[in-house]
Structures are given as structure tokens and as C-alpha cells.
Design a protein around this nucleic acid. Structure first.
Lengths: 338, 338
DNA sequence: TTGTACGCGTTATCAG
DNA sequence: CTGATAACGCGTACAA
């Protein structure tokens, strides 16, 4: 049933070594005639090398691990899509694992990646500090690039690709302030994540710069989901907390917030302005279309795959941390453009 | 650096076989005392078995292949998310590959799954006929369950989980007809896919049943994307083709169609009614909220993983093809509910 | 209960 | 240019 290298060797009257040669170093080392004979047998039997066996032999699996919190979030869906696409071009396959933003599940994902001997992993971590698992990658010599969510690490085997969250939210907050808003609600994702912290800091810096007090009741910690954004706005409304703007930590949160505002009969942007983050495709279809901060997802994916492959090839990185520029996309959930 | 079973054996003064025993048949076959000693060494050295080596040895990789057209489509994103989740619970990891709806890329994805020796694959095929690759699964003894997109096959090693597309579109079309529409534009996905064909047929049957002619100019073949839905409507409008309803082959197409109609100043549902398919989360946030046909994604995922695991365990399937009931979700892009 | 020896499919080293 | 042969890490008859 399964045809192996051994079978080919036997049928072609050569040794396994020779077959292996025509398979790999396809340009040299084998006589033209024998090469043809071997290749013929390979073709006829439709032989495909067992990558597991090859993996155990040369310690390279041509597999990349991808660890993200949640694929159903369009941001990560698109990210994974792009990563898979670039990786496939480079002859790599991706092993996907989701953490649901749970640190303990992240540890288990990491454990899987190690036992399955992926050549490297791209990680959007659920946590902001280096955890045991991350060190284990080092220990096992598995390169790791942090994408989207930055984590401090001094490992030679790791790097990072992300946008400057702090700056992005500083800009967005400032836009809102310049537009006359002093009570800006902030709808955050899980605080465990590095991105959440950075985004909150950017928001705080902007407030400070304009000598506006950061009111704790304007901060809502939730998840990156529509439901969460919806709940935050509803709760603030119930608690009668006044605000004239909403800054959301992700577009899905913003979508939920907009939905809640609509149900409450609050006009956007006249009564409340809204800014999201990610620039997912659906934001533009909303009514009114969502003003947001763009994350260059394709670029994020491309650069992280490229960096990981360099790490795998032991190429020294020109820059261990690539920071991409965020960009404000002005649509209709904000009034004037500052 | 890397600690192997051999190392453990040496340190614990036992043979590899014994270590292997405490690792696998964890309940019996080893003396209580030696078991403790071996386990202690395993824990201390944080030994993790090499799943590649195990894979080549027992021909089981604990890996499931997942082949879908496009993860950035929310329907597939959610599907993959759920599949990964169920698989992870059952100690399996997923190898993801996207076909972009290209038959040749599907062949390459299949080839990868075979060389990487996945234990089984879940496939949402880009094609409606059995292609060479599908047969190869059979040849290599790899179980395969078709999800969402049905393909006829008589292999003992395959099954299918899907909703009744034909019936779903028959219902939706009838709803539109009963509501007074005779010129119903149909916005299809790629015709290669089985689902597209079935959906078109359901649409045609309903028209026939009501003796309405199926006008070719009302049929627009595109891709499952927002852009495609948008383009279809715009083109029909430019060509001055009259229609009073739009039936879309997927929600993303419907979203694009609604966007186009809005830009054209056509009121929904007063002038044109719209029905989508999938019931993705964003449909409900649209203005007006999208009437659609629900696909029970979580159920689709759960059943297909369960079926695949049964196939892998050589359990005979109670039913080779599981058909889930689609359900019309009435929202605001349609007028009266029939 | 425990150990020995071999097989799984591939690559790599070293002869010839 | 080609062929033995030894790894790679693990599971498992079979023997002790």
C-alpha cells in the first residue's frame, strides 16, 4: 500500500542512498542515466517521501506553529490566512493552536508545538510577560517571533513584529480630545495581553498631555468580542456614566459598542464619537462607517514569516523588533478631522 | 539539550522499554517502585516524547488536516476555530491549509497532508467532483470527512457533514416569491464548489415550482467576498437589469450587495429585498440587519470532528452522511414573513 | 516485571 | 558515481 524509499530502491536496482540523492540534491551526485531510471520508478509508483521520517532524521519538519487567541476574530482570521499563505509559498505548513486568551492553554499549545517539533512558531501571546513556555522554546532551540503582541525577551532565537500600540492610541485619543471630548470611554480587551496594556497607556498619556483626569469608571475591561463592546456600553449607560466618545481596543469591540449606542438611540457621531482599532473589513460596512486605526495585517504576516524563516536559517536579524506604523482611517463615527 | 527516552532510561537505570511503558500503558506492566523512579527522572528532566518518532513508529500523528478555501471568510474562520477547539479537547492538533478555491492548490494541500501523515482530514472542497487527490486519501488509508461542501464518494474511509443547501435555497427563494418578487437576482459563489451548484439548483427548483422563468442575466457568478457581491449588484445596475430581490450564496456576498444597493440609493427592503446565507455574526449588525439562512457552524464542526475520530478508530459509522437542517433567520432586509 | 533487539522511513558518512 | 551502514527517537514482540 504505502510505497517507501526502500521500495523505490529495490525496483530501480539501486541503493536507498541513491534514491535519496535524486530526491534531494537533485542537481548533482547521480549519473544521468540512473537518475532517469529512479525518477521513472518514483513517478510510476507516485512515491511521496514520508516527512515524519525525514523530520526525525534531519530535525526539520517544514512546519510552522501559529498560536493565536481566537481565529473567529476577523483580525486573527486574516492574520492566520496571510501567514498560511506566505508560509505555503515557502513550502511550509502551519500547525494552528488557539489559546482563547488563557495563559494555561497557551502553555499547552507551546507544549504541543515542542513535541511536534515545529521549525519555528509565530505567537500572538495571551500574556504580556515572558512565561515558562516561552523559555522552553529557547531551551529547545525553537525560534519564535511575537506578532501583534510584543513581549520583552533577550533570546537570540526570537523577534517581534507589531504596530506601535501606544502611539496609535495616543493619536486616537488626541484626535478625540481635539474634537472636544473630555469624557472618553475606553473599552479594553483582556488586560493580560501586552497590547491591551500598551493601548491603555497610550490613552492615558494623551489624557495627561491635555491635563484631563483619567476616570476609572470610563474604563471597561472585557474581551475582544462584539458582545463585550455591547455590554460595556450598556453597563455604562445603566450606571449613568456620562461620556461623549468611545475608544475601543479593537474593531469587534467597537462594533458591539456602536450597536448598543444605536439601540439606546444615541446618535453617532453627533452625541458620541467612536474610534476602533484593526480596520477589519466589516467596519467600513457599518452605518455609520467606523473610524478606526489600521493595522497592516498582510504586512504583519509577511514580515513575521520572513523573520521566522531567517531565524530558522540562522541568519542574524538586521532588526530584532520590527515596528509598523499605525494609521488613522477617518470615516463617519467621528466628526471633524483634527 | 534535547532529552530523549534513551536518556531517561540511562538515568533511571532501566531499559527504554520500561520507560516507554510508564509513558504509555500507564496503568500496568511496571512495578510500582520502578515506575516512581522513572517518573521522577521524567519530571526532573522535563522530558517530552518526540511525537515525530512516535508517529513513524506507530503510524499515528495525532494531527488532523483541515483544508478550507479561505480562513478570512468569517464562516470558515469560525468553522476552523471550532474544529481546532474540539480537536484540541481530543488531544489532536490541526494542520491548516487553504485552497483559495483553486483545484490545483487543493491537490497540493492534499499532497502535504499525505506526506505529513495526518491521521485524518476535514475537507471543504473547492470542487464538486471527486478529484485525484480525494482518491489518494483512500489509497493511503487516510479518513476524510467532507464538511459544508458535499462530494459523492463511496469510500469506506469517508463521510460528510453538511446542511441541505438545495432545500435551504428552495425555502429562501420561495419566501421571496411569496413576498411578491418575480425578479430575483442570484449572487453565486464560485461554480466549482458543490455548494454553489446545490444552492443554484434550489433557487431554480423554487422558480420552476412557481412557473417563473430563470433569467440568465439575473445570475451573477463571483467569489465569496464582499467585493464580489458589491460588483455583481453594481454591474446589474449598470446593465439596467431590473430586480426586486437579491438572494446571495453567502453572507459576505450579501454584505457587499447591501453596500452597493445603499450607495445606489435603493431602499432595503422596500425596493429590493435581500437574503444571505451562513448567519455570520456581522449580518445582525448591518443596517438593516440581514435576513439570512443559518448554518449551524458549531454543530458542523463538532459532528465532523466526531465523525473523523470514529473513522480513525475504525468505528463503523451509523450514518455516513449527516445532514443538518438549515433555518431561515428573519431580520430586516426582507418585508413580510411568509 | 524487566530487558534485548529490531523495525518504522529517511538522511548522512564513509568506503569503494 | 554508487552502495553499505549507522544514526534519528520511539514502540513492541519476544525472551528472560
Amino acid at each position: 500500500m504505502k510505497v517507501t524509499l526502500d521500495d523505490i530502491a529495490r525496483m530501480a536496482n539501486v541503493s536507498k542512498a541513491t534514491v535519496s540523492r535524486v530526491l534531494n540534491h537533485s542537481t548533482s551526485g547521480v549519473g544521468e542515466e540512473t537518475r532517469r531510471r529512479v525518477q521513472a520508478v518514483i513517478d510510476e509508483l507516485e512515491y511521496r517521501p514520508n516527512l515524519l521520517a525525514r523530520g526525525i532524521s534531519i530535525s526539520k519538519t517544514k512546519t510552522l506553529g501559529v498560536i493565536v487567541p481566537d481565529i473567529s476574530n476577523p483580525f486573527f482570521a486574516t492574520l492566520v490566512q496571510q501567514i498560511e499563505s506566505y508560509a505555503f509559498e515557502k513550502k511550509y505548513t502551519v500547525l494552528v493552536c488557539t489559546t482563547d486568551n488563557l495563559p494555561e492553554k497557551e502553555e499547552r499549545c507551546i507544549a504541543v508545538m515542542i513535541t511536534k517539533h515545529v521549525d519555528g512558531v509565530i505567537l500572538a501571546s495571551a500574556v504580556s510577560e515572558q512565561i515558562e513556555g516561552h523559555l522552553r522554546f529557547q531551551k529547545y532551540g525553537i525560534p519564535c517571533v511575537m506578532v501583534d503582541r510584543k513581549i520583552q525577551t533577550q533570546s537570540e532565537l526570537s523577534g517581534g513584529v507589531y504596530v506601535d500600540n501606544e502611539y496609535a492610541f495616543f493619536l486616537a485619543t488626541e484626535q478625540l480630545i481635539q474634537s472636544g471630548n473630555h469624557k472618553i470611554a475606553f473599552l479594553s480587551g483582556p488586560v493580560g495581553a501586552a497590547t491591551s496594556k500598551e493601548r491603555i497607556e497610550g490613552y492615558h498619556y494623551a489624557l495627561q498631555a491635555h491635563k484631563i483626569e483619567a476616570l476609572p469608571q470610563l474604563m471597561c475591561i472585557g474581551k475582544h468580542s462584539i458582545q463585550s463592546g455591547y455590554n460595556c456600553v450598556m453597563r455604562m449607560h445603566q450606571d449613568q456614566i456620562p461620556f461623549t466618545a468611545v475608544l475601543a481596543s479593537s474593531d469587534v469591540i467597537a462594533l458591539g459598542a456602536v450597536q448598543a449606542l444605536k439601540e439606546l438611540g444615541i446618535r453617532i457621531p453627533e452625541e458620541v464619537e467612536v474610534i476602533g482599532f484593526d480596520n477589519i473589513e466589516f467596519g467600513a460596512l457599518l452605518d455609520p462607517p467606523l473610524t478606526t486605526i489600521e493595522q497592516p495585517i498582510a504586512e504583519l504576516a509577511r514580515r513575521s514569516v520572513a523573520m521566522l524563516l531567517e531565524l530558522i536559517s540562522n541568519i542574524v536579524l538586521k532588526e530584532k523588533n520590527i515596528r509598523l506604523e499605525p494609521k488613522l482611517i477617518y470615516r463617519k463615527t467621528t466628526k471633524t478631522r483634527y
